[in-house]
């Protein structure tokens, strides 16, 4: 977890994204306890206030919930988790398509390229 932060988005925002990816990717499971604010801050070499903000944002998004005295936990709400999964997929694809379109590729070329790539992957 020592990756660098990109220079365009607020850091707490990038932390939120990291956690979301971990949840969707299964690294963090439903109902699992997130590290304490301080531990998370140390691991990522960021300000604890920033982590606080990230956790607050994650809570606002209902991706996590904080339980008094126990800590912050990934939500167990399966519907929300599915929603999150869809959201991330959607964001990635939208960004990808936008990028490709900016470079001048047509929808057909994009589709072709993706299918080819996935076929090779098998």
């Amino acid at each position: 977890m020592g990756e660098e932060f990109n220079s365009t988005q607020p850091i707490y925002h990038q932390l939120v994204q990291r956690v979301c990816r971990q949840i969707v990717g299964g690294v963090l499971r439903a109902g699992e306890k997130l590290p304490s604010v301080r531990d998370f801050a140390v691991r990522n070499s960021v300000n604890p206030n920033t982590v606080q903000r990230a956790y607050a944002e994650l809570e606002r998004l209902a991706v996590v919930e904080s339980r008094r005295g126990l800590g912050t936990f990934v939500t167990e709400d399966a519907a929300r988790l599915d929603e999150l999964r869809e959201q991330l997929k959607d964001n990635q694809i939208t960004a990808f398509v936008l990028d490709m379109k900016e470079m001048g590729f047509s929808s057909e070329e994009i589709m072709e390229g993706v299918e080819e790539h996935l076929a090779e992957d098998k």
Binding site: I11, N44, S45, V46, N47, N49
Partner: peptide
């Protein structure tokens, strides 16, 4: 500066 930025408020 770059190294310390994530730590600053």
């Amino acid at each position: 500066v770059a190294e310390i930025e994530p730590v600053l408020d």
